[in-house]
Design a protein around this nucleic acid. Structure first.
Lengths: 149, 149
DNA sequence: CGTTTCGTTTACGTTAACGTCAATTTGTCT
DNA sequence: AGACAAATTGACGTTAACGTAAACGAAACG
């Protein structure tokens, strides 16, 4: 649904298609529902590494994968700094094996956190449902009172 | 494991036990691992309603139930304002039936949020596990290289 | 009775995660 | 060329959720 045509150098007439697989900042904003400020902020925090076409940022496929993980991490309540460490695991390249062991341990703790969170979430959902059934009964009683009046 | 003796008025000798079922601010801090500042802050935001013994706050059983819900809500990434609304559902008394319907609707949205969050959490856990298996294989390869050298 | 030991109020400070605004540059259209 | 839109770089502002420090009162203790 979005243009894959980006990074056209001067000299292109617009009919040629350069599927460089990069996206402009605006396309990123529309696709992921974030603001330009957010993307620049994430770059400043070294969460994203858009390449440059002159001054302008071009976001690669890798940046988009990372952004998806960032936004998901945020929904789980992780800080950007924690997320940055996790991104290292997802985007580890072969020349960074020295850090792999440390990253792996971090991921283990993170996984434990998430599973604990899941257990608690299940419990909370159960309790909320119980409360809502109580509320539903109350509501039913009220509407009955009113029809009787 | 914590003292249930609180709110003793002057004139008590310490052998009598007044199981008023209230806790001092310090006991609350130890029990729930929060700071006094946090408890006062929650009171100022009308999340807790400790009674007073002169100047001092005494936290009731109701306050403790609410605090548990507050801390859990925070772990799920909800704001204090959102949590305050949910507390209305859990601590609704019969004289507040006018607001019940509104609160119920809020709870329905909240429940939907939580179930969506659970689904996403399951997915994230699965992906993280996959990545960690990849990482584990890498680590195994490295240690093999080193033993061969 | 002096002194530590909580607890209280008031008020200013802090951090994360951006928002917002201004000045400027660059590309695009007519 | 002129105008307009879109992007960039500072730089300062904002909100939530507390932290921290000062100044004070009350209670407990030797």
């Amino acid at each position: 649904m979005y243009s894959q045509v980006q990074g056209n150098k001067p000299g292109m007439n617009g009919t040629e298609i350069m599927t460089t697989d990069t996206m402009s900042i605006r396309d990123m904003c529309l696709t992921f529902d974030v603001t330009p400020r957010t993307l620049r902020f994430y770059e400043s925090k070294e969460l994203l590494f858009p390449v440059r076409d002159g001054q302008r940022r071009l976001f690669t496929k890798r940046d988009r994968a990372r952004l998806k993980l960032i936004l998901r991490g945020k929904r789980f309540g992780f800080s950007l700094e924690e997320i940055r460490q996790l991104l290292d695991l997802y985007h580890m390249n072969d020349s960074q094996e020295t850090q792999l062991s440390k990253t792996y341990e971090f991921a283990e703790r993170h996984l434990a956190d998430m599973e604990a969170q899941k257990a608690e979430l299940d419990e909370a959902i159960g309790e909320l449902k119980t409360q809502m059934e109580w509320g539903a009964k109350k509501l039913a009683a009220i509407s009955k009172d009113q029809s009787a009046a």
